[in-house]
């Protein structure tokens, strides 16, 4: 996404936001929406953390683990990529209690979304590690490094840089899928939108504003990941096949 289009989008979004916020009676629904926004951000952060951890564990297990662990990691990745996020969420929320495991709605939300994005992230991590040239591995062997040490000190730091842009996309996917948690009674932004809509019938303003809030958060993620990429590359633009 070129920078110019981001700026154009942001300006249009801001202008539209001003128009809608200037409508009379907005104090009826703005506070509720902001509370929902906070919940949405919390779930996004929690889910992102879990997703990164799950992705690294699954990718490393799939690439370097012994056969049973490799098989387990493949199962995890295929199941979470092959079924939809909403089905996973409902499974944790409706089915697990009947199997005797009761999670709070917030826990099920973070767990389902984090594991879902983590499964996609595992492939990103795998791609990043595979993208590091073979020579690097050979050099670590020549230097008599153990494989875990080589992975930690040589391979992962290089793979990490290539992984940043796809992770940015995944975090935006995660943000978008947090809207699903409104269906398991969590009062996130989407839930609040429906609630405020039923209370005030300001349908157009509320849903437009909510779309703009989501857009704002995803622009923040985009800029954040850009900044992270700049820091990680130390300001040097490296040749990368992307």
């Amino acid at each position: 996404m070129p920078l110019k289009s981001i700026v154009v989008t942001a300006i249009i979004a801001f202008a539209a936001g001003l128009v809608f916020a200037s409508f009379a009676g907005y104090e009826l629904f703005i506070p509720g929406l902001l509370e929902g926004t906070w919940i949405t951000i919390k779930i996004t952060l929690g889910g992102a953390l879990l997703a990164v951890v799950a992705a690294f564990i699954a990718a490393l297990a799939k690439m370097y683990g012994p056969a049973p662990i490799r098989w387990l990691a493949t199962c995890y990745i295929e199941v979470f990529r092959g079924t939809s996020a909403l089905v996973q969420l409902f499974w944790l929320f409706f089915v697990l209690p009947q199997l005797g495991v009761t999670l709070s709605p917030m826990m099920s939300a973070i767990l389902a979304l984090g594991l879902n994005i983590g499964a996609y992230g595992a492939e990103v991590v795998r791609g990043g590690i595979n993208g590091v040239s073979r020579d690097q591995w050979e050099a670590t062997i020549a230097l008599n490094m153990s494989r875990p040490l080589a992975l930690r000190r040589i391979i992962l730091p290089q793979a990490f840089i290539a992984m940043i842009p796809p992770w940015g996309n995944l975090f935006i996917e995660l943000l978008k899928s947090t809207s699903l948690v409104s269906l398991i009674t969590i009062s996130d932004l989407t839930f609040r939108a429906q609630q405020m809509n039923q209370a005030t019938f300001r349908t157009l303003e509320i849903f437009t504003l909510v779309l703009l809030i989501y857009l704002g958060i995803s622009l923040l993620i985009t800029f954040g990941m850009r900044a992270l990429e700049r820091i990680a590359t130390g300001g040097i633009v490296r040749g990368r096949a992307s």
Partner: peptide
């Protein structure tokens, strides 16, 4: 470009509601 980026970075669920 603006419309496409807008639709891509907002949740489908809200678009359905919209």
């Amino acid at each position: 470009t603006a419309v496409v980026e807008f639709i891509r970075s907002t949740p489908l669920l809200i678009q359905i509601f919209f």
